[in-house]
């Protein structure tokens, strides 16, 4: 990797200050994407601001009808949290199936959604549960947060401080992992909350997306039969050596049905 200035601030304000005015500075949460990128010399930041020392950013709280997860909370902590397991078991399940144990013990929810890798798991949960993303400057709805391939609504210097997930009446996540990387080749998160039914798909396209037709069908009848004939068009879906767009489109339906069945269990 190339040389850079390393900082490990103790407060959010210091982190924001360190990033300010430096075009080539990069915040680092768990580093699970950034470190490999640096090691392959694919990025050359002037400064890396490690958010790992900011205690206020990590932790899980239940606030009324919501589970609020700090931006620097590691996947392993979400997976094992009694609060998350109690309120939204599907979210704990998702966190427990990200990457491998090493990744789960380093990677964070804030880092994952800020990076918005098309094959990341968390965006599926954020969109399906209609979570709210809180940053140092404001709040984003789930639908407005994920903009496209590796693109979010975050502006420069804006850091995810927490994600608030409404409790779900029913929810499940079904992931078809890429055989090599184990990222989501297709991941479908289905959730029934007070706000209605949502079906969010990650891994299949350039960015997480919802399947409106499935949501409508499930709102009427929350059963896998209700969506068995709803096909997602292959157009615009990812295609690579592991899965064609057509295969991904097919898997969206399979994983969605399995998620509904799991949510009904």
């Amino acid at each position: 990797m190339y040389d850079f200035h390393y900082h490990r601030p103790k407060t959010l304000a210091d982190a924001v200050g360190l990033l300010k005015g430096k075009d080539e500075a990069r915040p680092m949460s768990g580093g699970m994407t950034l470190i490999p990128t640096l090691k392959q010399r694919l990025a050359k930041p002037s400064d890396v601001v490690d958010l790992g020392g900011i205690k206020e950013l990590a932790g899980i709280k239940v606030e009324g009808n919501n589970v609020v997860i700090g931006g620097m909370t590691r996947h392993a902590d979400v997976a094992s949290s009694a609060d998350v397991k109690g309120a939204i078991p599907a979210l704990a399940y998702l966190a427990g199936h990200i990457g491998d144990p090493q990744v789960r013990n380093r990677g964070t929810i804030g880092g994952s959604i800020a990076n918005n890798d098309p094959a990341a798991d968390y965006p599926g949960a954020v969109v399906a549960l209609n979570a709210t993303v809180t940053t140092n400057t404001g709040k984003h709805t789930a639908d407005s947060f994920f903009k496209g391939l590796f693109e979010t609504a975050l502006s420069d210097g804006e850091l995810v401080t927490s994600v608030s997930f409404p409790k779900a009446e029913k929810a499940a996540y079904m992931k078809f992992p890429n055989p090599a990387s184990r990222y989501a080749m297709v991941g479908v998160f289905v959730a029934k909350t007070a706000g209605g039914v949502r079906v969010a798909v990650t891994g299949a396209g350039p960015c997480v997306f919802r399947v409106k037709a499935m949501e409508d069908a499930l709102a009427k009848n929350f059963s896998s039969d209700a969506i068995k004939d709803i096909k997602v068009p292959a157009d615009g879906l990812n295609s690579d050596i592991h899965a064609s767009a057509e295969y991904r489109a097919h898997l969206v339906n399979v994983m969605a049905r399995r998620a509904v069945d799991a949510a009904n269990k």
Partner: peptide
């Protein structure tokens, strides 16, 4: 079931050039 070394047929780039794409 898993392993496959794949070169891009046009460019000759090794597509399965890491564990992200080569399934051990």
């Amino acid at each position: 079931l898993l392993e496959n070394a794949v070169y891009d047929k046009e460019t000759g780039q090794l597509i399965s050039g890491s564990y992200m794409d080569y399934t051990m």
